[in-house]
Design a protein around this nucleic acid. Structure first.
Lengths: 295, 295
DNA sequence: CCACTGTTGTCAATCTATTGTCTAATTTTT
DNA sequence: AAAAATTAGACAATAGATTGACAACAGTGG
């Protein structure tokens, strides 16, 4: 059954061994269990294959159990030939240089439908943001392009990160950008990814002093503080900010840092015992570990 | 039944999936529910198939109780008593100090439903943003509160500003914040309001140099450039930016400026022949004038 | 009152799409 | 060598799509 789902809809894409045998991740297993429940409850598999674990929980838990009631249909009609992640990125870049925000938005939505939110974040949006950053540094793209694209992506992520029926017991993550870091897109990306993985996300936005981040973390009982460090790669104040943040946070809170320029502050990050992530995928798996209590 | 209505009268024409399955839009569903009520009440289907949702409501609501016919049911959730704008603002402020972004979002959504988008923008969000700014300056609110609230509102506005079926001939407005101005919420507010009034909005986000704004305006054939000036009220570079912007823009483009600190740059704004708006309502009516070609 | 006509809800027959299950021939692991 | 996974394809049960037919009913004209 599972293999047929994989063949027909790409429900999961497990790692393979040398001999081509499948290795399912913990998440795959969870997701498949939930999908089984959902299909047993009558949801057509084609409509829900790409939903993430929290989405599925939301679909199953709340009030749908009204008995033998007729079942809800989800999702949109699929029309055009589906594009893969790379094609979507290329199309998105074209929309960016053309300053066509409506087209960019459409592309992102298409990806959400065909790839699922999680894959969209990891395989399309994260690389796209990076590409835009690179092209901007090379001078191929103007500042406007970068800003406009950021605005569209920011909006999309805000929509993607909407908390759906969230358990009160979900672990809390605070996402922000330290003072002086003005690019918020990385933090928004992280927030969306975490939300997708079932964290309760407190999103604070860009350029917050250490005291403020710490205060938010305490007030919300956060287990993780995620920082995105992208643009000024040589801010002399940032190391102090990071150290101060560590002092203000309880020891039980883990700091995770990522972003294009995070490497540049390696020493300060080491002092704050921060988990340095090179990519969104890294971050994603780090979150999984942290949730299980492994610090 | 529905399919027969579709076949015979073209009552609805739902989208189709690849496999030729029907996908009814929300509106279709509503309309069909109302049609059912209307036919049950005795209206021949052939007479009313093409009526829109509001028409059908009008047909059903008023005094149709003339006989012993089954009575039309109203379908509002009708749970909580509707709150007016001021109550919503108060509730929103409470959510802000409690750092409860989910609650804040819910309040905004409630407002969108009960007041309508336009009134929500003018009577709730704009005053709320102002209040938050004031409380922050007074020190009643911390930076985190302001940031988190901004993030939520920003997301909400991004969603609210989605262009629905927009004519290619709609006039274009570019919304941004000049270089050095980091608070984007004012620009986002303006963008949402303009979008609601039928402008095609090119939203660029915060802190853009004059050259970039001008380039975007030219490339998109903008008729209006809207600037939001909120936080640094004493940026020595800003007047230059504004003058430069005027030089780079075609004369046919009108600049409109607003925001808490716009007054502080009155002279420079005068030189750029900018339309200074003291409130979002001002801006809104200015837009209406501009659309009719009055500069 | 009756025959005729047009409207409208319901149904059956047939076709297609979706989806769970099974088989067969290989390949990998134990 | 036995056990288990791999791929590809076939098949059956179910649900939706399409078409044509039919019955109930209201109106019309004789």
């Amino acid at each position: 059954m599972i293999r047929v789902w994989e063949r027909r809809y790409g429900t999961v894409q497990p790692e393979r061994s040398e001999g081509n045998q499948r290795f399912y991740s913990e998440e795959d297993v969870q997701r498949l269990a939930l999908l089984k429940q959902a299909t047993d409850a009558g949801h057509p598999i084609s409509n829900i294959t790409h939903l993430s674990v929290p989405h599925l929980r939301a679909l199953l838990s709340p009030q749908g159990t009204s008995g033998d009631a007729p079942l809800p249909r989800v999702q949109l009609p699929a029309a055009s030939p589906t594009r893969n992640a790379e094609q979507l990125i290329e199309a998105a870049l074209k929309a960016v240089v053309g300053m066509d925000s409506a087209a960019l938005e459409k592309i992102l939505e298409e990806g959400a439908v065909t790839l699922g939110q999680n894959a969209l974040l990891l395989q399309v949006i994260a690389p796209l943001v990076q590409r835009i950053g690179e092209e901007w540094q090379k001078g191929t793209l103007r500042i406007v392009h970068e800003h406009q694209a950021s605005a569209v992506i920011r909006t999309f992520l805000g929509r993607a990160a909407r908390p759906l029926a969230m358990h009160a017991s979900a672990p809390v993550l605070v996402a922000a950008t330290p003072a002086g870091q003005l690019h918020e897109i990385g933090a928004a990306l992280v927030a969306a990814a975490a939300s997708n993985q079932g964290w309760r996300v407190v999103y604070l936005g860009p350029s917050l002093p250490a005291e403020e981040i710490a205060s938010a973390a305490r007030q919300n009982g956060a287990r993780v503080v995620a920082l995105s460090i992208v643009h000024p790669a040589d801010d002399p104040n940032l190391p102090d900010e990071l150290r101060r943040l560590r002092q203000l946070l309880p020891d039980s809170v883990t700091v995770v840092a990522g972003g294009r320029s995070a490497e540049g502050y390696r020493d300060a990050l080491f002092e704050t015992r921060a988990n340095l992530c090179g990519s969104l995928a890294d971050f994603s798996s780090a979150l999984d570990l942290l949730r299980q209590g492994v610090n």
